[in-house]
């Protein structure tokens, strides 16, 4: 392990009965980067995170965090990380300040140092004015922010965030993403799981794509895009179902791949401007009428589609 690696995962496996939740994955997270685990629901992201944060023992393989093994040095690992769980986990009958103070103590903080840090975190998550209110009375967004704040108290070297933006309004989501970047700028390594590819694209230095317990792709955003070639995806909608249209488009010059999913037809092309007129022509030959077009420049969605034949959202 090189000195600037924060997390190293080696051949990690976790089975629940017949379900291979995590089936032999490897990756490294470098110090100071934002690393995203991207994948649909049920891909094994949370299981992986749980093993990294010492909540689950791996069946085999190894996890090193800041050089400490989760098996043999769980306490050192826990001291080094701050975990933001997917579900909001705080004491609703305690105030924001009481929650932060309690969790700070759990990380071994005491006295004036703790008090000062609680104030800083309250400021950071924008809850200073609401510090004395019981958190049960907070709005969903405020609870999310407090949920994150708890993980930041002890200046962890690694912050692990498990889908922190699930089910919240766009505004809170924006502020969380900005917050993550700010933390990263201050030097924290962030391991971030999401099934929103936009978040992964926007935040990450490296992205690992998981599906069915496997790591199916890993790299920087640019590296991953390159997997699908610089291809553009065109989503087309027809007025009526027409099975003949797919073979017809396949014949068009410049089309590299054609998919049909949930009534949506997708075509991967190198140059959309050149190919588009020909798609209309081909449709006409089989009596199909195109009623909608959506042109998508290459993104992670396309990468996932390319690798699994399924759209990311559909899981």
């Amino acid at each position: 392990m090189t000195t600037n690696t924060s997390i190293e995962v080696r051949d990690l496996k976790k089975y629940f009965g017949p379900v291979k939740a995590v089936d032999g994955i490897d990756f490294k997270v470098q110090q100071g980067e934002i690393f995203s685990l991207l994948g649909p629901n049920g891909a094994g992201k949370t299981t992986t995170i749980s093993m990294i944060s010492c909540l689950l023992q791996p069946d085999s393989g190894e996890v090193l965090v800041m050089g400490h093994s989760t098996r043999s040095a769980a306490q050192q690992v826990k001291a080094a990380i701050g975990v933001v769980p997917q579900e909001i986990a705080l004491y609703e009958d305690l105030s924001a300040r009481e929650n932060l103070t309690f969790w700070g103590k759990m990380y071994g903080m005491r006295g004036g140092m703790l008090k000062q840090r609680v104030d800083e975190v309250l400021e950071l998550i924008g809850l200073t004015e609401h510090a004395a209110r019981r958190s049960g009375k907070f709005s969903g967004g405020m609870k999310r922010r407090l949920n994150i704040g708890i993980a930041l108290l002890h200046h962890p070297q690694v912050i692990i965030m498990d889908e922190p933006t699930v089910g919240i309004d766009p505004q809170s989501r924006r502020s969380i993403l900005d917050g993550v970047r700010a933390l990263n700028r201050e030097g924290a390594t962030v391991l971030y799981t999401t099934h929103y590819m936009e978040e992964a694209e926007e935040l990450s230095n490296h992205i690992a794509i998981m599906d069915h317990g496997h790591l199916i792709a890993l790299g920087t955003h640019a590296e991953l895009i390159r997997l699908v070639g610089q291809q553009t995806r065109i989503d087309l909608t027809l007025n009526a179902e027409n099975p003949a249209v797919l073979p017809a488009w396949q014949q068009v010059d410049g089309v590299s791949q054609v998919y049909a999913e949930d009534g949506h037809l997708s075509v991967l092309v190198n140059d959309s401007n050149a190919v588009l007129p020909h798609l209309f022509e081909a449709a006409t030959t089989v009596d199909a009428r195109i009623t909608g077009i959506d042109i998508k420049e290459p993104n992670l969605e396309a990468v996932f589609l390319h690798l699994t034949g399924r759209a990311l959202r559909d899981g």
Partner: peptide
Amino acid sequence: EHGTLQRLFTTPVT
């Protein structure tokens, strides 16, 4: 049920 126990176990507490 509320997830705080799991969260406790992510902190350095035995």
